[in-house]
Design a protein around this nucleic acid. Structure first.
Lengths: 105, 105
DNA sequence: CTGTATCCTTATTGATACTG
DNA sequence: CAGTATCAATAAGGATACAG
């Protein structure tokens, strides 16, 4: 987004970072555990490797997700929430609660 | 979105409804008050009439926003949160809080 | 296993002009 | 005031193949 009034509307800042088609689900699963690349692929039906990579890189760039590479063959990479990422948990939890309520109504 | 695992991930349901480039800000302003079309245009710099209309219609279609038309000239239309929409307040509040924290860090 | 690289399609957004 | 209509541009997403 070019330059909206983020100061006046922090809501927008947050949605910029966790919005998008897949980030919600990625964060949802990272909230409960450290996950590997392939694991996320399985947990999130329909996502392609390209999109998963892209979203994870995005989250990483914003300091929300940490990427830990084990230099071995075959490769092993673990994704987890950073300190900042963990502060998102209440947000994710609220979204989750609301989503559940909405689905029941 | 076609058919992801919304049941497994209510977070996604929520983000589907309140995500997008402008919905966060629209909801942010509707949380605190009833707003008119032109008022929202002023409050949200950069949004076009076309986009504001589209987003409001979206929110309306999902039962989050109520559109009240006063049959008069010049026209007057008021937008407000529905009962369901009001249940979003804690969610918006969490997003807002997190956004503020993020901006400060 | 964890990605890149290409190419292509679709969805979102924007600019602008116009209307009841 | 509160929108529509039209057209154009950009961004997001997807399919598939390939690589270290």
């Amino acid at each position: 987004m070019s330059k909206s009034n983020k100061d006046a509307c922090p809501t927008e800042t947050a949605l910029d970072l966790i919005g998008g088609k897949w980030k919600g689900m990625i964060l949802y699963y990272l909230c409960s555990d450290i996950r590997r690349f392939n694991e996320l692929t399985r947990l999130i039906p329909g996502i392609t490797q390209r999109m998963l990579t892209k979203q994870l890189r995005d989250l990483e760039a914003h300091g929300i997700v940490h990427r830990k590479v084990y230099p071995q063959v075959p490769p092993k990479v673990e994704y987890s929430l950073t300190k900042l990422g963990k502060t998102l948990k209440p947000v994710i939890r609220e979204l989750e609660k609301w989503g559940q309520g909405y689905l029941k109504s």
